[in-house]
């Protein structure tokens, strides 16, 4: 490309040198410090924590949720949200359970899990983009709807006739202590990170989250991008359903109840603005570890489940409030 214009008079530098301070004060860096602190605390307070197998077990606590959080992060950055993900897990699990009762093989079960998840996501996406409804309302509705369907089909029964080979997705190990779930999550984290930060699609997500009107006026197909994000969110919920169902080996309609809050907490803790427009995948990944370490640490300390639920609630409120207070402090 030739520079036909006076480059010296109107030269605008690409970026300014900012030094180490802003980088150190980034949300991701702080999170990493928090993760290290909790890790140290856990190691000091329980002799069992540092055992490789114990750490491996710890990952099962959060990988399924974190897998969905990757897609949820994209949705929230685009200023939408999907609160029906936990109910999609239940719907997928019931579909797989019914198919397993009918004698379906492992491959077919996985396809059903992913397919039902994607369809449920498409249903959300169609309602939001087709009718221009707010996603928070639509997905609160489908949260009830999908879970309700699971109850209608299964009642208070249980599906547990899964083929033996199906157990791999939630119980198998790829190498030594590295579980299939964990490795898959790490691989997906890389994929989502590349998509969000290195592709046009990712850039469109930021543009839509910051100003959907200007995004549309820039030739971006806003509705199509949003629809795809809802399908992706459903697909990830389907995948989580495959892993979770495989791990527990049975399906009850109450499966994964209340997970949506933990997933949203994870995303917001990762530095994604609940108002849309900003956030990063590395932040969400670190936040997943923080959440996993906290719940596992509490478990090691024999803290009852109801207290954990209180902890999650406090975390959700504080992570939404903290970045706002943080920006205010930086602003002054």
């Amino acid at each position: 490309m030739t520079m036909l214009y006076d480059a010296t008079r109107f030269a605008v530098p690409d970026r300014l040198e900012t030094g180490w301070k802003p980088r150190l004060l980034r949300w991701e860096t702080l999170l990493l410090a928090v993760a290290a602190a909790i890790f140290t605390f856990n190691a000091l307070s329980s002799p069992y924590f540092l055992d490789p197998w114990s750490l491996s077990d710890a990952t099962f606590n959060f990988t399924e949720k974190a897998t969905i959080a990757l897609a949820m992060a994209l949705l929230i950055i685009a200023a939408e949200i999907d609160l029906s993900v936990a109910s999609i897990i239940a719907l997928c699990s019931v579909a797989m359970g019914a198919a397993a009762e009918a004698g379906a093989g492992t491959g077919v079960l996985v396809l059903i899990g992913l397919g039902v998840g994607a369809l449920a996501g498409a249903f959300n996406g169609a309602l939001v983009t087709g009718f221009g409804l707010p996603s928070i309302v639509v997905t609160i509705g489908t949260l009830s709807l999908f879970r309700g369907l699971a109850y209608v089909v299964l009642g208070d029964g249980v599906y547990k006739n899964y083929p033996d080979s199906f157990a791999f997705f939630g119980q198998g190990y790829v190498w030594w202590v590295l579980s299939f779930e964990f490795v898959l999550f790490l691989a997906l984290a890389v994929v989502f990170g590349v998509v969000l930060h290195k592709t046009s699609f990712g850039r469109w997500i930021y543009a839509i989250g910051n100003n959907p009107t200007a995004a549309r006026f820039s030739g971006i197909r806003v509705e199509r991008v949003k629809f795809l994000l809802f399908v992706l969110s459903g697909l990830m919920a389907g995948l989580a359903s495959v892993m979770l169902t495989s791990r527990v080996g049975s399906t009850r309609p109450s499966i994964a109840f209340g997970w949506e809050l933990e997933i949203v907490t994870m995303v917001v803790l990762g530095g994604v603005s609940i108002l849309g427009g900003s956030g990063s995948i590395p932040g969400v990944v670190i936040a997943a570890f923080v959440m996993g370490l906290v719940t596992f640490g509490l478990g090691l300390l024999n803290v009852p489940g109801i207290v954990m639920s209180i902890v999650i609630g406090v975390m959700l409120i504080s992570v939404i409030a903290l970045p706002i207070l943080w920006r205010r402090l930086q602003g002054n």
Binding site: K198, T199, S200, R203, Y206, A207, N210, N211, A215
Partner: peptide
């Protein structure tokens, strides 16, 4: 017109991203 919170260069390249990618990567 503009996505105000995004950087200047990202605003300028927003409709041209397809041209600025190689193998799908920006």
């Amino acid at each position: 017109g503009a996505v105000l919170p995004l950087p200047i260069f990202q605003n300028i390249t927003l409709p041209s991203l397809g041209r600025l990618s190689r193998n799908g990567l920006l």
